[in-house]
Design a protein around this nucleic acid. Structure first.
Lengths: 132, 132
DNA sequence: AGAATATATGAATAGTTGCTCAGATATCAA
DNA sequence: TTGATATCTGAGCAACTATTCATATATTCT
């Protein structure tokens, strides 16, 4: 069920939207407005998606889905410099999507979030479903 | 189960990674490399996330989750110009995340993808779980 | 101690993105 | 037709991003 509102989508007659001051049926619109996600949540959600919205970071998450890896192995897997990988891992780490375990001079990164893999898998299924 | 590989994550001894030419245990690394998502999939997945990685577009998807809406109502809901909203809707539309239904001079947009709401909901739950 | 290795970090830069503004298109109303 | 409304589109610009390069830090080996 895509609609949670009790009031039907586009009001009674769909011709009474968008006159002066750009107001649709005020009652319906106010109802929807009251149900919108708050700014903080919207920003937080967008931030997570933005982090996953880069091929390099998707590759890193994908690589880490097979177990923890050190920076230089990750660099080899995603075919980028260790510096570039380190920069990206820092972003993922500051959002707690990955965590580090340091041993000697090596840093082993691992996924630190049971949701992230799910998101990537869902999206993967979605794009594979869409190409036809 | 986060790990799909049959070969354990960091090889037998975790000290045999990253010598010359940045190769960890070649066997393990090659195994992981062979399981990585291909470039096309990675790019497609990142593209979807990138699309959702913007507060305005998250707001639009959220607003549309309560039913179809015309451009100017959406503009009022997300508090942006109709031009800005139209630009963003075009991006969402070209990725088939939303669809249009034109009636007279109005354009009613609706979610065109049963996965997208799920992604937003999952991520919302994730960020709300993370703040504590 | 000194050299080599693994990672991290800051600055610089090329590329991208999201908005505004002005104008185009299309529909409806008088 | 003329004017108003709803949406779309292109150009321009300020802000952001991902990489590279040079360098710093920290650890191990000889």
């Amino acid at each position: 069920m895509p609609t949670t509102s009790l009031i039907p989508p586009s009001a009674s007659l769909e011709t009474d939207s968008c006159d002066t001051a750009h107001a649709g049926d005020p009652a319906v619109l106010a109802d929807v407005a009251g149900r919108l996600l708050d700014d903080r949540t919207v920003q937080a959600v967008a931030d997570v998606f933005k982090l996953l919205g880069d091929p390099t970071r998707v590759r890193l998450v994908d690589a880490l889905s097979h177990g923890e890896r050190c920076v230089c192995d990750l660099a080899a897997l995603v075919k980028l410099s260790e510096s570039a990988v380190s920069h990206q891992l820092r972003l993922l780490r500051s959002a707690r999507l990955v965590r580090v375990r340091r041993t000697g001079r090596q840093a082993f990164y691992a996924l630190d979030d049971h949701h992230v893999l799910g998101l990537v898998h869902d999206t993967r299924r979605h794009v594979e479903e869409g190409e036809r």
